[in-house]
Amino acid sequence: MLIDFEAFTPMASTFGGAMIGLAALLLLVGSGRIMGASGILTSLVLEQSLWRIVFVFSLVVTPWILMQSGMVDISLTFVADDWRLWLGAFLVGVGSQLGSGCTSGHGICGLARFSKRSVVAVLTFMATAMITVFLLGRGV
C-alpha cells in the first residue's frame, strides 16, 4: 500500500464529511427522516412530495453556486470509458434499491445507529467496489 500524499485532503474531507453528517442530523432531529440519497431520489421519481423537491433542489443548487462563484475550485475527473459510466449508473441504481440503501443511508446514517444491516451492507459494497477497481484499474 502506497499513500498518494498529493491527492490526500484530510482537512477538506473531514470538514466536508462533518457537513454531510450535520445534514443527516438536521433531517433526523428536525423532520424525523433518514437522509438516504437513493431512497429520496426513488421516492421523488414516483411521488413528488414537496419536501423532497426542496431537498433535492438545494442539494443541486448549492454546488452550482459554490462552483460558479469560484468559492470552491475543484476540477472533476471521470472514468474515460463510457461503458463504465453507463453500467456503473445502472448497477448503482439496482443495487441501492435491492440493498435498501447507499453510501449515505447505510454509510452515514445506518452506521451511526449501529444498525447490523448497515454494517453488513457497508462492508459488502466497500469490498466489491475495491475489488472492481483492483480488477479493472482506475479507468480515469
Partner: peptide, 19 residues
C-alpha cells in the same frame, strides 16, 4: 447482501453514488 454487492461494483466502475 446481493444489493450491496451490486451497488459496490457499480460504484467502483463509475466512482459515483446517488448523493
Amino acid at each position: 447482501i446481493l444489493g450491496a454487492a451490486i451497488f459496490g461494483v457499480g460504484w467502483g466502475l463509475a466512482g459515483i453514488c446517488p448523493g
